[in-house]
């Protein structure tokens, strides 16, 4: 059982990593999700899969062949966190598609290499002279 799970982890992590290296941001985001799930399964497997009874200890008895509850708790935490991060990645993906009109990662990240734009006359710091910035306030959220 653990061997099968370990092989699945390896396969999923490979697929996730492969997609992460793609130039298309959509694939990158899906790659992160797959890699995250591979690692969740990996954490569960690392905690051993022996035991088939829920680890409920009562006043009178303890189960004989209890499953280890700790890795399950860890993975539950990680799944919740991973879901949040995945949703944020999707929001960034959507916004980049709208603002940049392209989802090719190297084209998008090349924008950060451009010289810093001048600060707009009379504006606060950080408000770039960026035509896309104006209608950008709440839309992405």
């Amino acid at each position: 059982m653990e061997l099968l799970a370990a092989l699945t982890v390896g396969g999923l992590a490979g697929i996730g990593m492969w997609m992460l290296l793609d130039r298309n941001l959509i694939r990158v985001v899906i790659g992160i999700a797959i890699l995250g799930n591979a690692i969740n399964l990996g954490v569960l497997t690392a905690g051993r899969m022996a035991g088939d009874v829920a680890a409920f200890v009562t006043a009178t008895s303890t189960p004989d062949h209890a499953a280890n509850p700790l890795p399950q708790a860890l993975v539950l935490t990680a799944i919740v966190i991973g879901f949040g991060l995945f949703v944020f990645s999707l929001a960034v993906l959507k916004r980049i598609r709208e603002v940049h009109d392209i989802t090719t990662t190297d084209v998008v990240s090349a924008v950060t290499e451009e010289p810093a734009p001048d600060l707009r006359e009379g504006s606060e710091v950080g408000q770039r002279a960026d035509p896309a910035a104006a209608p950008d306030k709440e839309g992405g959220r």
């Binding site: 992160i32 916004r95 980049i96 998008v108 950060t112 734009p117 770039r128 960026d130």
Partner: peptide, 23 residues
């Protein structure tokens, strides 16, 4: 925060690399 083309592009790099590190 604040959005804009340049900032989103920076967010992308920051997001992907830091996600990988936490994973």
């Amino acid at each position: 925060l604040g959005g804009g083309k340049r900032r989103l592009a920076g967010t992308l790099t920051y997001l992907v690399l830091n996600l990988l590190a936490t994973l």
